[in-house]
Amino acid sequence: MNIFRFAGDMTHLISILILLLKIYATKSCAGISLKTQELYALVFLTRYLDLFTDYVSLYNTVMKIVFIASSLAIVWCMRRHPLVRRSYDKDLDTFRHQYVVLACFVLALLLNEKFTIQEVFWAFSIYLEAVAILPQLVLLQRSGNVDNLTGQYVLFLGAYRGLYIINWIYRYFTEDHFTRWIACVSGLVQTGLYADFFYYYYLSWKTNTKLKLPA
């Protein structure tokens, strides 16, 4: 475990908790894509199938449980919470994410480290995480609503991606057998999509601040 990966895990966790707290505090999920949050929950559920079989460390196990619980809590809030669900932009969050899930699963069947259930689902979760932001990106382009997508959320999400890439570079130079091409290539694609999301976030945020200024 290196500091970059630890910091990356922490910023990733904080970004999820910021979103969860924001939804819970404002009792609103306007501008947030339920589909992206469902994809994230699916990423954690399919990636941590080894939660009860492989014990890596207490940290690893605790973090897996926290990631699964927090991502499911966001989905539950957006689907079931009587107040929150009313503010969901159902008719704007129309990205057909089932095709993305299917494409990632087919790719995982073809490109994986070992053709076992666990490895195929692990590769699936890696590919899915890379494209999970797409419904949120589409919703942001359509609604321009950044009320619940706070700047801190975007900041920590960016920090998570950046730190993980530094972690891979660090491990590449310090460990001889570090070959995680699936995670690295997919992670780079994910970071590229996040950069696109951040760009549209900035545009929406700029427009909103202009709109909010006294006319």
Binding site: M1, H12, Y55, V56, S57, K64, E113, W122
Partner: peptide
């Protein structure tokens, strides 16, 4: 700290 499945990253 490697897991049997070799995935030690979250």
């Amino acid at each position: 700290e490697e897991a049997e499945s070799g995935h030690d990253e979250l």
